[in-house]
Simulated scan of single mutants.
Amino acid sequence: MIRVLRPRQRPSWQIVAPALLLLCAFAVPGGLIMAGQGEPAFNRIDTTWQAYSFTLHAPFWDAVNVVLNWAGYTGALVSHLVLAAALLIWQRPRAAAFSALAGLSALGLTQLAKALVGRDRPQGAKVLSDTGSYPSGHVSATTAFLVVMALLIGQQWAKVVAVLGILAMMVSRTYLSAHWLSDVLGGACLAAGVVLLLWWPFCDICIQENEIAGRTTIWRARALQRQQEAGQQE
């Protein structure tokens, strides 16, 4: 945990500016869909991608996407809780609060947006789903968790894993005909924007907390090692 968690300091504008751009990228399509009374505002792109997704169907990919269907929503929420609990155990309560708040905020705003936009889902969905297609809840939950992890870990490999995980969930939701392409893009933009905005006030305190907790854990580990060495000598 000491070596894994290394949140990085960034200028405020490098956090806030991308967050606002992502939220705009979510809000503009949502507004256009609402203006069209719930009909797909990007019909040609959405339907073309949906038609292409049908060509990918195969028993193996069906099985993979059943797993992703669970992991993308229930799994992501459970992962948020496990992460928050682990951070508390490892003496990082503010990082735990950031993780929990990010997950709950992304979930709440996604459900609110679904109700406000009122977009119909594609026909022929392979999984049970709630009402409201824009934005995708699975993509939103997955994005929130992976972006939180990438921010707390602070390493390039974590960013790569986050991007690949988000893309996999986006493809999965369209493969299952649970969402239009614009739905999954909107879910990713909303969650990433919300997490980054929350990271802005939490960044400095999480960095300080991580350093203090790391030094404490190192001290205890060294003390335990000295005790063990003394016991062996006796």
Score class of each variant (00 low, 15 high):
residue 113 A to Q: 03
residue 62 D to H: 13
residue 100 A to Q: 00
residue 94 R to P: 00
residue 97 A to W: 03
residue 53 S to M: 10
residue 31 G to R: 01
residue 71 A to F: 14
residue 58 A to M: 10
residue 81 L to M: 14
residue 99 S to F: 02
residue 41 A to H: 02
residue 92 R to G: 05
residue 91 Q to N: 12
residue 72 G to F: 11
residue 52 Y to H: 12
residue 56 L to F: 02
residue 76 A to E: 08
residue 66 V to R: 07
residue 120 D to F: 10
residue 56 L to I: 02
residue 92 R to P: 03
residue 79 S to V: 08
residue 87 L to V: 05
residue 72 G to R: 12
residue 86 A to Q: 11
residue 51 A to N: 09
residue 95 A to I: 04
residue 127 V to W: 09
residue 106 A to Q: 03
residue 61 W to G: 08
residue 101 L to H: 08
residue 46 D to W: 01
residue 38 G to Y: 06
residue 51 A to H: 06
residue 43 N to V: 10
residue 48 T to N: 00
residue 35 A to S: 15
residue 82 V to E: 07
residue 110 T to H: 02
residue 110 T to S: 05
residue 72 G to N: 11
residue 51 A to L: 07
residue 72 G to K: 12
residue 105 S to G: 05
residue 38 G to D: 09
residue 106 A to E: 06
residue 76 A to G: 07
residue 67 V to W: 10
residue 48 T to S: 08
residue 96 A to N: 04
residue 76 A to C: 09
residue 103 G to D: 05
residue 106 A to V: 02
residue 73 Y to H: 13
residue 54 F to C: 03
residue 54 F to R: 10
residue 66 V to M: 01
residue 96 A to V: 06
residue 89 I to H: 04
residue 65 N to H: 10
residue 64 V to H: 07
residue 59 P to S: 13
residue 128 L to N: 00
residue 91 Q to M: 03
residue 56 L to N: 04
residue 110 T to Q: 03
residue 126 K to L: 14
residue 128 L to V: 05
residue 47 T to D: 11
residue 55 T to I: 01
residue 63 A to Q: 08
residue 43 N to S: 13
residue 49 W to G: 09
residue 87 L to K: 06
residue 82 V to P: 09
residue 118 G to N: 08
residue 123 Q to D: 07
residue 81 L to A: 15
residue 71 A to D: 10
residue 38 G to Q: 06
residue 94 R to Q: 08
residue 124 G to S: 14
residue 102 A to R: 05
residue 130 D to S: 09
